[in-house]
Computed example of a mutant assay.
Amino acid sequence: MTIRLAEIWPIAAPATFKLHFARWNRINQPLEAWARSRSEWQKWQEHRPARDDFNRPLIFSLMQFYHEPDTWLFGGVFRVLGRHPDRYEVELAGEGAGFIGRLKLGSSYRNRSTRVNFENHHADLTVLEILREPYSGRAFPGFDEIDLGFEELETLVRNGRPDWKAALESVKGIYLITDTMTGLRYVGSAYGDNGIWSRWCSYAATGHGGSVELRKLAAEPSLAYIRQAFRFALLEHRPVGTADEVILRREAYWKQILLTRDQFGLNRN
């Protein structure tokens, strides 16, 4: 049975709101920005393009829950305090505070404009789920289903997602990093005491994890290119008690199979 947002949250004056459908801006996913930093998420409301899109007192903000089609996560109601030529001045309002980061709504909205009049959409927004806790990263999908953009990896590491941490600490393995802008690939391995988790935490912190070739791509302090281009996958996992020699041998195998030591890859040994 479909439940409409208006049934659980009647809003007396929808015409005082603009609705913000925040989605990927070709650099960042708003969902990861919110999970990473509330102040970073607020900047998505402060950004002012050429047009005065937020021309009403309030903003009802949604972020695309990009793992699931037609799904949006509520990111708060913001009050517009000032409109400057280059930015908006906003503050988080109290309305719907208990739903922030928890209320998942359904909408098939796909138009180009991301800032629209709220009253045109309020009646069509459906309630999909209310999370028990505010979103802090995607639930661990299993070792065979790992496919992470760098930005999502940052979120998981920064928030110390316990399901990911426990799973990846328990295994050694071989992983693949793909530069989606060039198609070049890098094969690496994790064979220390803390398994894959520790190794990937190093990437989240630096962007390159110590690799000479990846260090060149992570030269920008903001890691902008890395966030846009890198994806992580797990090629093979073994119990944490597996001998390091086995992991290194399998790493060499994957480098050979995927041709990552020549023009198709980023490995240099």
Rank of each mutant, 00 (worst) to 15 (best):
W9S: 13
A12G: 06
L19C: 13
H20Q: 12
W24V: 13
N25V: 09
W34V: 13
A35W: 00
R38F: 00
S39L: 09
E40M: 07
E40S: 05
Q42M: 09
W44M: 11
A50Y: 08
F54Y: 04
F54W: 09
L58D: 00
F60G: 00
M63F: 14
Q64N: 01
Q64A: 03
Y66P: 01
H67K: 08
D70S: 05
F74V: 04
G75K: 01
G76T: 04
V77P: 06
L81I: 07
R83M: 11
R83Q: 14
Y88A: 11
L92W: 10
L92G: 01
E95S: 07
A97M: 06
A97Q: 11
G98E: 07
F99C: 07
F99H: 08
F99S: 06
R102T: 05
R102Q: 10
K104L: 15
G106R: 04
G106M: 07
S107A: 05
Y109V: 10
R110Q: 06
R110Y: 02
N111T: 06
N111R: 08
S113L: 09
V116S: 06
H122I: 14
L125T: 02
T126F: 09
E129K: 12
P134K: 05
P134G: 12
S136W: 00
G137R: 00
F143S: 02
E145R: 15
F150P: 00
F150T: 01
E152D: 15
L153N: 02
E154Q: 15
G160P: 12
G160W: 14
K165T: 10
K165F: 09
A166V: 14
A166W: 08
A167W: 10
S170T: 14
G173Q: 07
G173E: 02
I174L: 13
I177Q: 01
M181C: 12
T182K: 03
L184M: 08
L184I: 06
Y186C: 00
Y186F: 10
Y186I: 00
G188P: 00
G188K: 03
G192M: 04
D193C: 06
D193Y: 04
R199A: 01
C201D: 11
A204I: 12
A205H: 13
H208G: 08
G210T: 15
V212S: 12
V212F: 14
E213P: 05
L214C: 07
L217P: 01
A219G: 15
E220S: 15
S222R: 13
Y225H: 11
I226L: 07
A229R: 04
F230S: 00
R231L: 14
R231Y: 07
L234H: 02
L235Y: 05
L235N: 10
V240K: 06
G241Y: 12
W254E: 02
W254T: 03
Q263P: 02
G265S: 12
N267E: 03
